[in-house]
Each structure stands twice: as C-alpha cells, then as structure tokens.
Design a protein around this nucleic acid. Structure first.
Length: 106
DNA sequence: TGCTCGGCCGCAC
DNA sequence: CGTGCGGCCGAGC
C-alpha cells in the first residue's frame, strides 16, 4: 500500500546530535530531509522553505557541513539550472550522482 | 568584541 | 557561455 510521509522521519539520535549545531543548519537539514526519495529539490527551494530566500549560498554551505550524510539526503539538492552542483560527502559528486540514480531521480 | 573570508548558489550582464 | 557581484552564515584571527 502507498504511504505518504508528510512528516519528516529523522532518527532520534540524529535529532539529538543536530541540537549541537546552529538553528540555521538544523532548519536546512530538516527541510532537506523532507525531500521524498526519488525526487530532487534546489538550493533556492530550501532557502525559501526556511524563510530565507536569499540565503541560498548559506544553505549550500550548511549542506556541505552536513555530518549525517546519507541520513539527511543532501544529495537530493541540486542547482536551479538542473546541474548537480556539488557534494562534499564521501566520494564527492560521483557518490551524489550514484545515489540519485539508485533512487531513480535521474 | 569585531572584521575577514570562504562556501554543494543564483542571477544579471 | 563565461564572469562578476549580491546576499547569508559560521569559523578563525
């Protein structure tokens, strides 16, 4: 059966660890976690979502600092021009691309 | 405490 | 299609 996850499902231990980071980062990561598997969003989408439409660059920076790599799916965030953008996780862009492909977002 | 700099961007030349 | 500048946050000095 089809289940729609409107609520963000983040492991409690992750949520707990997030608290030791800035609120801005937490917002970014949570917004990011709301992206369904198999889909992608843009950096500006996140920026708008957290109420700071012009903080696009800061968003990118926050995602780059993401210590919870695949758990917080920052690899589902791409640039507004359709290109992948960057990825500071293990394996770099290569990994980002592979993950998206595996999830069917490409 | 205050300033500088860099970063997974966006958009206008 | 390349370049530059704008705007934002956090770390470092």
């Amino acid at each position: 059966m089809k289940v729609r996850y409107n609520a963000v499902r983040i492991p409690p231990n992750i949520l707990k660890q997030m608290q030791s980071y800035s609120e801005f980062q937490q917002k970014v990561w949570i917004a990011c976690a709301a992206i369904p598997e198999g889909e992608v969003r843009t950096y500006s989408w996140i920026a708008r979502k957290i109420g700071k439409p012009k903080a696009v660059r800061a968003v990118g920076r926050a995602l780059g600092q993401n210590p919870f790599s695949p758990i917080i799916p920052c690899h589902r965030v791409i640039k507004s021009d359709g290109t992948l953008g960057g990825y500071s996780g293990l394996g770099g862009l290569r990994t980002k691309k592979a993950l998206l492909k595996k999830e069917g977002a490409l």
